[in-house]
């Protein structure tokens, strides 16, 4: 449904906001567009949505080129921009009715389309509130309702859960999953668990370049724990430290406050398997074990790994200054 081919964008000058990015999204698929802040996520989504023009490259949406057939391409998309810009002076229902008309929903179908979108995005109870009086969470949902109002087959959501509380985040994730069954959904985020929670596939970009793209398991593998956090009762901390350091594969044991962080000499694929011998050794030595938990790689570490991998795969003179 969405095909992006060697997309590049520069805002004048030599700085590339996006460089040679290609990916695609099929119907029935939720693709997470992942990257740190300033990686070029919003720029890419804006180009796909038809708000910005690309410097080079092609974007096809539902089979229509975004430059050659902009009306057809835009009509197939529901786009929610990052900051969710709305007209504060309008009421929620007024706004959605306007958006429905703007997107060409027939007059007779408008009322039900607005009602359906408000139900889906859970803003129906605030239909007659002026948008300016709504909380951030509600504004976000009004933006979502706007994207849904014309029932487009393609949804492009720029950071749909930014600024929401945990309950609302879960609701939005559930909704995205549900919509993903019969829509093509492209959503951007800089939060890794977000992608794991709601996407089938991830496209990762950093500094405007595509660094990884694939099924989520590959990404999860990178995020798999490579260290353990061990908490023991305070008096035996030093004893435990010496004991752990003596274990076969253990590389380093660091003390961080009341806890010990254990890393391995070689990278282990599954730290879960390593927990057992470690725990047994501690218990056998009579040390009071309180907690063993995996330390997951942070997003930054995953990005570092991915970026490094990409650079190694395709040697590039101008990778990073």
């Amino acid at each position: 449904m969405i095909e992006v081919h060697e997309l590049s964008k520069t805002y004048g000058g030599s700085q590339w906001a996006v460089r040679d990015v290609s990916f695609s999204v099929a119907r029935g698929e939720v693709v997470g567009f992942l990257g740190p802040n300033g990686a070029g996520k919003s720029t890419t989504l804006r180009i796909v949505a038809g708000f910005l023009g690309a410097t080079s490259g092609r974007v096809r949406v539902a089979g229509h080129d975004i430059v050659e057939q902009p009306m057809k391409a835009r009509a197939a998309m529901g786009y929610m921009p990052e900051a969710v810009p709305l007209y504060p002076e309008l009421r929620v229902e007024e706004y959605l009715r306007y958006r429905a008309e703007l997107k060409g929903v027939a007059r007779s179908a408008r009322r039900s389309a607005v009602g359906r979108a408000m139900e889906l995005a859970r803003v129906a109870d605030h239909a007659s509130y002026p948008i300016g009086h709504l909380s951030k969470g509600y504004r976000q949902r009004v933006g979502l309702a706007d994207a849904l109002v014309a029932s487009p087959p393609i949804l492009i959501l720029d950071e749909p859960t930014a600024g929401l509380d945990p309950n609302q985040i879960r609701e939005v994730r559930d909704l995205v999953r549900e919509l993903g069954r019969d829509h093509a959904v492209l959503l951007s985020t800089h939060i890794l668990p977000e992608v794991e929670a709601s996407c089938d596939r991830a496209v990762v970009i950093a500094k405007g370049r595509l660094v990884a793209s694939g099924k989520l398991d590959e990404l999860s593998r990178l995020r798999r724990a490579r260290a353990l956090r061990v908490v023991v009762d305070a008096p035996s901390l030093d004893a435990a430290r010496a004991l752990l350091a003596g274990l076969g594969d253990v590389g380093e044991v660091r003390r961080e406050g009341d806890a010990l962080t254990v890393t391995w000499k070689a990278s282990v694929d599954d730290t879960a398997a390593a927990v057992e011998p470690l725990a047994r050794a501690l218990v056998a030595a009579g040390i009071g074990l309180r907690e063993v938990s995996p330390v997951r790689a942070s997003l930054e570490e995953v990005f570092v790994e991915l970026t490094r991998g990409a650079a190694a795969g395709a040697p590039d003179a101008e990778a990073t200054p």
């Binding site: 804006r46 949505a49 038809g50 708000f51 902009p70 009306m71 057809k72 835009r74 009509a75 998309m77 786009y79 921009p81 900051a83 810009p85 709305l86 007209y87 958006r99 703007l102 997107k103 060409g104 706007d146």
Partner: peptide
């Protein structure tokens, strides 16, 4: 200023 131009210009309108 408010950014609503983005939703306006991504709607299928000339």
């Amino acid at each position: 200023r408010s950014g609503t131009i983005e939703t306006l210009l991504t709607a299928p309108v000339s």
